[in-house]
């Protein structure tokens, strides 16, 4: 399959890339790993007159802890994330997530920034970033701005990024004492989008009560879902079986799945409950709670 015609641009700097996006408003797309964009163009589900490849811009692939945060460069490949020592050691929820994105070959090109900026509710990082309370950095013509992840996903394939902005960095709060997270995905086969998936993050205080909870859900509505009612429910509770089960039940109520070949609405909602329960349990274990 051959995509419809477009012009390819390979700017050498971010400023040039932003200027090119501004030059072709509404008709340019950022090419990062290309593992969602190129299939979409090949299937002619979308069109773009101009692809702005950020692949030649230096300094967009890194993973480092700095200032109490994990900073991930926007063009960091998924394979780099899953193999990163610091991520394996301190952010196992990110390894859970990266490892179930597409397949290992696709992950050699697919990027973390692209996974978020694409705005696909079926992508896996959005739920995890919602659970973790991440921020994304967007570079536009008037400079950088920081967008909290819960203000980022506006609709199906629609994000808070302006047409001339590029997602350059993801910031995740560094783990604190008593924190843990996990991502659990149900997929029909390797490489599939989630039938349902859930990301959970908890911070358990020294007295054994939940101080912070984050729950994000994948492919269970037109946007990635932050299950705020379930998060609130957990605050101040002991992370025991009954409380986790109740939070999972509340989280499932926040879903708006649509029926497709992956399952019926009722089935997906039930899977949201089951998977959230499992993700919470694993997050609590990793937090040292049990």
């Amino acid at each position: 399959m051959i995509p419809s015609s477009f012009d390819y641009h390979a700017p050498a700097t971010l400023a040039e890339a932003v200027a090119l996006l501004g030059k072709y408003p509404e008709d340019a797309k950022v090419l990062s790993g290309g593992q969602s964009l190129l299939p979409l163009l090949k299937l002619r589900l979308g069109q773009a007159g101009h692809l702005i490849d950020i692949g030649k811009i230096p300094g967009l692939e890194y993973i480092k802890e700095e200032g109490g945060m994990l900073r991930i460069g926007g063009r960091t490949r998924e394979s780099a994330l899953e193999r990163s020592e610091i991520v394996q050691k301190r952010y196992p929820i990110l390894v859970d997530t990266a490892k179930v994105i597409a397949d290992p070959i696709v992950r050699n090109l697919a990027t973390v920034g692209g996974n978020l900026a694409h705005g696909d509710p079926g992508n896996d990082h959005p739920a995890t970033m919602l659970a973790l309370g991440a921020q994304v950095v967007a570079m536009g013509k008037s400079g950088e701005r920081v967008i909290p992840i819960d203000k980022f996903f506006l609709g199906l394939f629609r994000t808070a990024l302006q047409p001339d902005e590029i997602l350059t960095e993801i910031r995740i709060p560094a783990p604190v004492e008593g924190s843990g997270g996990a991502y659990v995905k149900l997929e029909r086969k390797v490489g599939d989008y989630a039938t349902a998936a859930s990301a959970a993050y908890v911070v358990i205080g020294t007295q054994g009560f939940v101080e912070r909870a984050g729950i994000g859900l994948t492919n269970l509505g037109p946007t990635p879902i932050k299950a705020t009612a379930a998060e609130k429910y957990l605050i101040g509770k002991k992370p025991e079986t009954a409380a986790l089960a109740e939070a999972a039940r509340i989280a499932a109520q926040a879903t708006e799945p649509s029926a497709d070949r992956r399952g019926a609405v009722e089935y997906k909602r039930e899977m949201a409950r089951v998977l959230t329960g499992r993700a919470l349990k694993k997050a609590v274990e990793r937090a040292g709670g049990k």
Partner: peptide, 23 residues
């Protein structure tokens, strides 16, 4: 031709990539 099967896999600087999903 849809980035699934891997029949088009080549090595790009030593890393396997799907050459049907790369310009």
């Amino acid at each position: 031709d849809t980035s699934h099967c891997g029949a088009c896999t080549v090595l790009l600087d030593g890393q396997p990539v799907k050459s049907c999903t790369f310009l």
